[in-house]
Every structure is written in C-alpha cells, then in structure tokens.
C-alpha cells in the first residue's frame, strides 16, 4: 500500500470525486434495497405472520389469494395426511372499513368471536367501536400487530364473520401445520411454503422483480464505473509502474498495491453513501415503506464494495503486464 496511499494523497481531488461517485451510487443502492424490503413487507407481512408451515391453494395456473377457493373436503383431505398436525381453512379478501383493508378470517390465534374484528393501531379505532366492514356491522374487540397484505392494513375476523363479509360459504386457502418432509400433495390443491406463498399476493412478484432488477443494474453499472475509473488511472500511471517494475517491484507487489488502493476507495465511498442513505432512510421511513436493517444497509454496502472490486480487478490486472523496458525505452 506504499504507492497506493501516497497516490491517494497526491491525487486527492480525483479520488475525492470518485469517492463521491461511489457514495452516490451506494446511496441509491441502499435506498432502493430499503424501499424494496419495505414494499415487500407491505405486500406480504400478513402472510409472514401466519402460523403453520405451508399454505394450500386451489390448483390454478397462477396461484392467487384473490382467486383461490378451497372446500371443506379439501381441508379434510389434507388433515388426514400423515405428518399433518392441523389444516385450518382461512379466508382472505379485500373490504372497505375506514378505508380499504385486507380481511383475514379464521387465522388461529387472531380470530375473535363472531361479529368481532381485531384491527391494527394505525386505523385509530378503539376497542368497542362499532364499524361497518362491507355491509356487515362488527365490533372492534381488540388490536393486533401492524401487518399488511398487498399494501392494505390487515384486520382479523373469525371464519364465519369473514364468510359473511365476503359473501361466500367456502375459504380462500388452507393453513397447514405439518412435519418437515410430509407429503402435502392433494388433488385439486397447490401447496406452497410460506415464502413461496408470497407469489400468491397480487403484484408482489412483479413489484419485487422490478425493484431487484433496478438494484442489480445499479450494481452492474457500479462495477463498470469503477472498472472504467481504474482503467484510466492505471493507464495514466503506466510509465511510473514500469519504472517501479524496472527497479525490482514484482507483479504481485503492484497488484496488491493497486487492489488495496481500489478497496480503500470503495470502502470509503460506500461507507459515506451508506451513512447518508441510513440518515435519509430514517427520515423517509415515516412517510414511505422503508426497512432499515443490517440486511438492507450492510449487505448492499458489502455488495457495492464486492462488485467494485470485481470491476477494479479487471482494470488493474494490467499492472501485471507492465513491461519494465517501457521505463528504459523512454531513456533511449
């Protein structure tokens, strides 16, 4: 790092500018990652909060909470399978309360008595309040954690109440609690793990896919930008490297030095960008769905450094091909 550190000092203007570029790109990646996680949670946190190990939907080309419909016969068939502890029908639909809400009926542990509804604090409804859900009059019997489904706050009712609200006699899906490895296949049903069941939530897959694609593209662009910078930088110092090679520096010495320099610049730039994104994320989380966690802050930062190093490695590998004769050639 002898040359690397001194070059950083000498060309601090150029490197500061480049650190700024890295910081801005990291800022975008971290903000986008936090937003992706936030939007994801807004789509499926109610699914995440469901008990059990799997969900069974009616077999359709595209499994969806909106179109799935299961019968008591389906529920009995699953409950009778070896290794299945319980199979509970649940209802999922959208309704109008104070605004649009997702109504979940019959969820074990979150199922009030008939005519009652559990609401999250964010709806601002006190226990005992009388509310109208679609055309049904219900009483708020308690509060529940803040969960949402398809970006709508989730409220919980009993399965009977849900059937009245949804004007149906069946259920949407079957919540299965089974031993690991149990055979859950059943005619006319598609059984998914809880995380697989995210895809049954409206636009979750396309929303997450688009955002993840943007994050991936940003990371790819970052690798190219870092590679381009260090390509130009390495070309600019080609003659100096030839001199250092001529006086006895090995290829590995120059490569270590150049990669150390790239790593330092990347860590500083990515660190600044992450700090800035954390501050902005904290402020934004009050207004938009934004998750600030190690997985949405430190992981994208580490990815930025990693892809940057990949780009830099392609760029600085030319230091190993510097011909010391170049230095002597200049003297002829």
């Amino acid at each position: 790092m002898f040359l690397a550190l001194r070059e950083l000092r000498f060309a601090r203007g150029r490197f500061s500018l480049f650190c700024g570029v890295i910081a801005l790109m990291t800022l975008m990646v971290v903000l986008l990652t936090g937003l992706t996680a936030g939007l994801g949670a807004a789509s499926v946190s109610a699914v995440d909060a469901l008990p059990g190990t799997a969900l069974a939907f009616s077999a359709e080309p595209k499994v969806s909470f909106a179109t799935s419909s299961v019968s008591e016969q389906d529920q009995r068939a699953l409950a009778a399978k070896a290794g299945v502890h319980s199979a509970t029908p649940i209802g999922v639909s959208t309704a109008k309360l104070t605004g649009a809400v997702a109504v979940l009926g019959g969820v074990p542990g979150s199922s009030p008595t008939a005519g009652g509804v559990l609401v999250p604090p964010s709806l601002g409804l006190a226990t005992g309040s009388h509310v109208r859900v679609n055309d049904q009059d219900l009483v708020v019997t308690g509060s529940t954690s803040e969960h949402s489904l398809n970006h709508l706050p989730a409220v919980y009712v009993s399965l009977d109440t849900w059937r009245r609200v949804a004007h149906t006699s069946g259920a949407t899906a079957i919540l299965v609690d089974a031993e690991p490895g149990a055979d859950l296949s059943s005619a006319g049903l598609t059984t998914l793990s809880r995380t697989e069941a995210y895809s049954a939530v409206g636009s979750y897959s396309s929303e997450q896919g688009s955002l993840n694609l943007m994050t991936g593209l940003l990371l790819g662009i970052s690798a190219l930008v870092v590679g381009a910078f260090f390509t130009v930088w390495t070309m600019q110092r080609g003659h100096d490297l030839a001199v250092v090679r001529a006086i006895g520096a090995s290829r590995s010495y120059l490569l270590r030095d150049a990669l150390g320099q790239a790593a330092l610049v990347l860590v500083i730039g990515a660190g600044l960008g992450t700090a800035l994104a954390t501050g902005l994320g904290l402020a934004a989380s009050t207004a938009v769905p934004f998750v600030l966690a190690p997985s949405t802050v430190l992981v994208p930062m580490a990815l930025m450094v990693l892809v940057g190093l990949v780009g830099a490695t392609f760029a600085v590998r030319r230091v190993t091909t510097v011909d010391p004769l170049t230095a002597l050639g200049a003297a002829r």
Binding site: R6, F10, A11, R237, D240, V243, A330
Partner: peptide
C-alpha cells in the same frame, strides 16, 4: 530522464 515517480 530520471524517471522519478511524480506522486512521491
């Protein structure tokens, strides 16, 4: 032409 490293 000396070939000193100008950054050092």
């Amino acid at each position: 032409f000396y070939n000193l490293v100008p950054n050092l």
